[in-house]
Each structure stands twice: as C-alpha cells, then as structure tokens.
Design a protein around this nucleic acid. Sequence first.
DNA 1: CCGAGGCATTAACCCATGTTAAGTGCAATG
DNA 2: CATTGCACTTAACATGGGTTAATGCCTCGG
Lengths: 184, 184
Amino acid sequence: MIEGGLLERISGLGSERYAAKGTFLFRQGDLSDHFFIFCQGMAKAYYETIDGKEFIKSFIRENECIASMQVIVAGSPSPFNLITVENSRFLEVPGDRLLAVIKEDAEFSSAFSSLLLQVAMKKERREYELLCLSAEQRYRLLCKREPELIQRLSQTDVARYLGITPVSLSRIRSRTPFRCPISE
Amino acid sequence: MIEGGLLERISGLGSERYAAKGTFLFRQGDLSDHFFIFCQGMAKAYYETIDGKEFIKSFIRENECIASMQVIVAGSPSPFNLITVENSRFLEVPGDRLLAVIKEDAEFSSAFSSLLLQVAMKKERREYELLCLSAEQRYRLLCKREPELIQRLSQTDVARYLGITPVSLSRIRSRTPFRCPISE
DNA sequence: CCGAGGCATTAACCCATGTTAAGTGCAATG
DNA sequence: CATTGCACTTAACATGGGTTAATGCCTCGG
C-alpha cells in the first residue's frame, strides 16, 4: 500500500497507462526497470519454472506498487513475470528517474524508506506462512485476511499463490467446512 | 551483511556483549527492540508454533545483523525467538537510539536504506525457494551456496531451516549421491 | 443453437514428507 | 568405567499433495 503523499509526488515522474487483462508489463529475464503503481485493476507477479510450472509471488491491486528489485538494484534480469489479471490503469515510472529523485529529495527518500520497510515486513509475513503453515492453513488465513482477493481471482490463481495445484485447492475446499464469508 | 562504514558508525551507539551458546537474546512475544550486530559466533532466529514445532527463519553470522522489525516499527511483540547457536560476541544497540540517529544523520539514513534493500532482496530469494523448490532442491541449493553453514550447524537446525523434519533431511541425504564438497 | 475452450470437481494412483519408535555412536560427566 | 543425553539413522505406517484423466458446467463466438 502506498501512502497518499508519496503517490502524489510520484505521479509527476511517470505516465498513466492502460492495459487489458492478460497484458505483460514485463517478463522474466527482462531488464525493464520500471516501477508500477496501480490505480485500477490487478496484476500478478509470478515465477515460471523450467518445466513450465507457475508460482505466484504476489498480486498488485489499487494503490499498490511493484518493480523488480533485482533489476533496479543489481541490474540483473527480472526473476519473475508481471501480467495484468484484470483490465487495469496504472502509473509507469522509469527506474532511473525514481532513483534520481530519491537521491535528491530527502523527504521523498524517507517516504521511500518506509515503503521499503513495509515491503520487507510483508515479505516476512509471507516467509512465515510458507515456512510454518500447511497449504490448508495458508488457504484459511488468506480467506480470512483477503476475502476480496479470493472473490476477484480464479481458483487456479489462488492455488498458484498458495504454492499448490488447482486440484489440491479444490480438495482442500471440499474437505473443509470453512468457507469464505462473502462467498455465501 | 553489513558494510564497513555503517558498522563503524553503529559501534558507538551500542555496547559489546558476549553470550554462551544457547543464550536467548530475545524471545517470541518480547518487546525488546534491540538491534544486534554479530562479530563472532552465530545465532538463529526461529518461530515456535503452538504445538511446539520449531521453524528457523534465518541464521546470523559474523558481520550480519538482526532485529525484530515488528517490534521496532510496529511496537508489536516479536514473532520469533533469537538464540545463539555458538558462543558469540556481538554489538547490542537499543532500537530507539538507532532510529534517532537515522532521523538525524542523512548519510547514515541512506546506508540504512540500502541495508533494508538488502534485507528485502534476501527475503525475496527465500520466498522464491520456499514457494517454488522442493525440500531436496532447497537442500542442494543450500549446500552449494552456503557450504560453511552446513558445516557449522547440526542437521536438525539445517532441517528446521529448510522447513522439514530432521528425519526427512536424513532421508534426503541418504537418497542423494550429492554431497557437500567440503564434507568429504 | 451448437461447438470450443476454459475452469472447477472428482477419482485413482504415486511419491514425498510427517510421525513414531527403535537402534547406534559419540561426547560429556560422575 | 558406566551412565546419560544427544544427534543421526532407519524402518513402518499414515497423510497430504502431485499427476493424470474424465466429467460437468460455464461463456463466448460462430
């Protein structure tokens, strides 16, 4: 989640874009260093393994942002794909412009640091879930914490985010008395 | 990994401490906001679940640092334990002093941001591994990337870090022709 | 209206990992 | 030397998730 102030300052740096559902914003292996801030719609960031399997790293919705840190910081190719899963509107900011402003503007830089901190904490939560919880526990937690996400996504994408197959998610759902409150 | 410059500046803020193997530096649920920088030895940060299972989040070795972000940033209790796994020497810096210096000193603050970035990238790698790789693949990768870590740790701790049981790790090792190069 | 493609469900089978328990070897300690 | 505790291994069994395939249900486009 990106705060109001920061968003306004960033807006000037980039341009507004639209993309239909299913559009790649960048691909695994690309060196595109753009920073994306979503205004409407949703995208998914996902890894694709050699044998063609897909694992979803994260979803990006309204007022959330994403870039490939590896590209921006280390200049190495992006390890993941970014593709829209709904028709979307977003800001696209070139990485070098963002970095330049961060260097110049102290206030901006501190806002950016706190953004980084948010990212680190979010990743820590995800690490915890993947390390300590079973697939079923992860699913229940997601239902509780992000019911709206479950609504907007296909079950396939939910499964890929949980790190399991759609078949397995279907089993978990049938096995479980629990349901996402909104879905009734 | 903490850079030379930053380390020197931090040293003045805290005090040097020693702790024998098996000493808790803080526990799950604590509100201790200390920041630790290791000079010698090693610690492990781990989650303990309700039913008594242990999952290791990370190891902290020479020139690496750790704190519970949740405590420092959100003031909420630490979700994990920190305990030494070797006799250790380290710097202990109170969180409030660190935050104060970050606010005052621009150069320090930017060094700290890049540290945050390192943390975020490290967590991203770990997320990738937990999400996309099997236990066996994770073990092989660890052997290749951190042979020294494997040497210094018990197999139990390696297993807890990989997210599997020691029994399962023993099986993987016996199943596999692959061995850590140094261990022969 | 019909057919194609995509998604969810279900079943059958396989394999990896968890669980429990027993056995072994080693190091520390009395 | 004997005892204790710990780490590691191995085995037997249970279970969760992967794989494949069949089925049914949509929606979309002809």
